[in-house]
């Protein structure tokens, strides 16, 4: 196969070095067990591990399989085990690894679907288990929303960090407890439990506490902190789990109980526009 002109970096970018990609290959339909395969990848300045994989696919071996989408650290698809750490391939620059050989495997603690594609089903099932949505006692408040919930910026600050989770699954791959106990809910689901329980618009605290109050819930966290170390979005799930433990205790002791969520704001009828705010543009549709 000739080099793809789109990927030919020799004319446009100076090749700084050539690195060896040592990539895990596994096709469950053909292979009895995973094997490692080596590729030589030229590296211009700024090339990411994901771009290196694309180079391999387009120029060296079109059968190499992985999952990726946005290429900018937003979608969370390209989580891989790169040189011994779970990382997003699109956010990891090859030169930053400071190595001549890059070992790439699928995320640990998940089954392999093919090559570098992990089966993220456990992550998504645990995420769904804790009901990652606003729970209101009056269901019609959500189903037939008539206005905005009133929430102050300060109340938002209490949980906003945990809304940055992109469900990439790196935290579960890094967690030593998940490694030995697949049933453990794990840092992602527990951090999201804290995120929704802390949201003043939500009324599902007791409901979620009951869901996670098992031997596979918060008490199983060893506080190794590996989840927080590898999170590509700067979320701190280990911290969230400790806060969740505290909140469960305070809730039980009736010291800090969130019985009712914030109300829905009524329609603004007598509001006056602030000085200097221009008219809205005319509708185009």
């Amino acid at each position: 196969m000739g080099e793809n002109p789109n990927m030919d970096t020799s004319q446009a970018e100076e090749i700084v070095k050539t690195v060896t990609y040592n990539v895990l290959r596994y096709d469950p339909d053909k292979d009895s067990k995973p094997r490692m395969q080596r590729f030589q990848v030229p590296v211009p300045k700024g090339r990411t591990v994901l771009e290196g994989l694309i180079y391999i696919k387009e120029n060296l071996d079109g059968s190499l399989t992985w999952r990726s989408s946005c290429r900018m650290g937003v979608c969370g698809s390209c989580g891989m085990f790169i040189n011994g750490l779970p990382r997003l391939a699109c956010q990891t620059q090859i030169l930053d690894l400071n190595a001549d050989e890059i070992q790439i495997k699928p995320l640990p603690n998940y089954d392999i679907l093919k090559d570098l594609v992990p089966d993220l089903k456990p992550l998504l099932e645990k995420h769904k288990y804790i009901h990652p949505n606003l729970v209101r006692r009056e269901g019609k408040e959500i189903d037939g929303l008539t206005g905005e919930f009133f929430q102050t910026p300060k109340e938002l600050e209490n949980y906003i960090q945990f809304t940055f989770c992109i469900k990439c699954g790196l935290c579960l791959a890094a967690c030593p407890t998940v490694a030995t106990d697949a049933n453990y809910l794990g840092p992602q689901a527990l951090a999201q439990t804290f995120r929704y329980n802390t949201d003043t618009r939500d009324e599902g605290n007791q409901f979620r506490f009951d869901l996670i109050d098992t031997a596979d819930g918060t008490t199983k966290c060893h506080f190794a902190g590996a989840c927080s170390d590898v999170c590509p979005k700067g979320v701190d799930p280990a911290f969230a789990i400790q806060l969740l433990k505290r909140d469960m205790l305070l809730h039980k002791l009736h010291i800090k109980r969130k019985e009712k969520g914030v109300p829905i704001l009524g329609k603004v009828t007598d509001g006056k526009r602030m000085k200097g705010v221009p008219d809205a543009p005319e509708k185009t549709v």
Binding site: D213, G217, T219, K245, L249, K252
Partner: peptide, 12 residues
């Protein structure tokens, strides 16, 4: 008991 109750007693 609930798991959290065991844990609270552990702390106590």
């Amino acid at each position: 008991l609930k798991e959290s109750t065991y844990w609270y007693l552990f702390l106590l």
